[in-house]
Computed example of a mutant assay.
Amino acid sequence: MATVLDDYLDSLDEPARAAFEHVRRLATALAPDAEQGVSYGMAALRYRGKPLLGFRAAKEHLSIFPFSPAAIDAVRERLTGYELSKGTVRFTAATPLPDDVVLDIVRHRMGEITAP
């Protein structure tokens, strides 16, 4: 059964779709029970009912949204050369995010969600 995230990824060109599929595979390897849906109006993975990682493609870049400035700050020094904002990491299909950085962002966000 297709999900909102599946439908969104299917609407993208192949390089963008492949880049986001890779990020999704990494995230769901850490959070296999993450649900695919919508958070803050964008296709996203949700973990324990809370937004884990959002996906959005723009004309010039791809973005992931960990819904946490602290998750981005935790890996900021390893993202030299990527465009960052308080809640967004921008990249391209030609310059994908390093796997270890994606995994650390997801781990950090999962920790925030499960913290008491």
Rank of each mutant, 00 (worst) to 15 (best):
E60L: 07
Y82C: 12
P15C: 12
R76D: 13
M110N: 09
S85E: 06
R76F: 00
P51Y: 03
A44H: 08
D6A: 07
R78M: 01
L30G: 14
S85I: 06
G41L: 04
V23A: 13
K59L: 00
M42A: 07
P69C: 06
I72M: 09
M42S: 09
R76S: 14
M42I: 13
P96E: 11
S11R: 14
F55D: 00
L30C: 09
L45T: 15
E60N: 05
L79H: 10
Y82T: 08
G54I: 02
M110Y: 05
G54S: 13
T114W: 03
A18C: 04
G49K: 10
G54A: 01
Y47A: 15
D7L: 10
R24Y: 00
A57Q: 02
A2H: 12
A93W: 00
F20K: 04
T92Q: 14
G87C: 11
D100H: 10
T88D: 10
L62R: 05
D73S: 13
A31D: 09
P66W: 01
K59T: 12
R109Y: 02
L30E: 10
A58H: 08
D33F: 04
V38W: 06
G37D: 08
V75H: 07
A71K: 12
A115E: 15
D99S: 09
Y40A: 11
L97H: 12
M110C: 12
M1E: 01
D33H: 13
A57E: 06
H61A: 03
R78E: 05
F20R: 07
V101M: 10
Y40M: 08
L45M: 08
V23T: 13
P96M: 06
L9Q: 04
R17K: 15
A58F: 14
M110A: 04
P98E: 07
F55I: 01
T80M: 04
F55P: 00
R78N: 09
S68L: 09
P32Y: 03
V4Q: 05
R90W: 12
P69K: 13
V75A: 07
I72C: 12
R78G: 02
L12C: 10
H22D: 11
E60P: 11
D33K: 03
A94Q: 14
I72P: 12
R17W: 13
A44E: 01
K50T: 11
P66Q: 06
V102F: 10
T28I: 03
Y82R: 06
R25M: 04
L103W: 06
S85M: 04
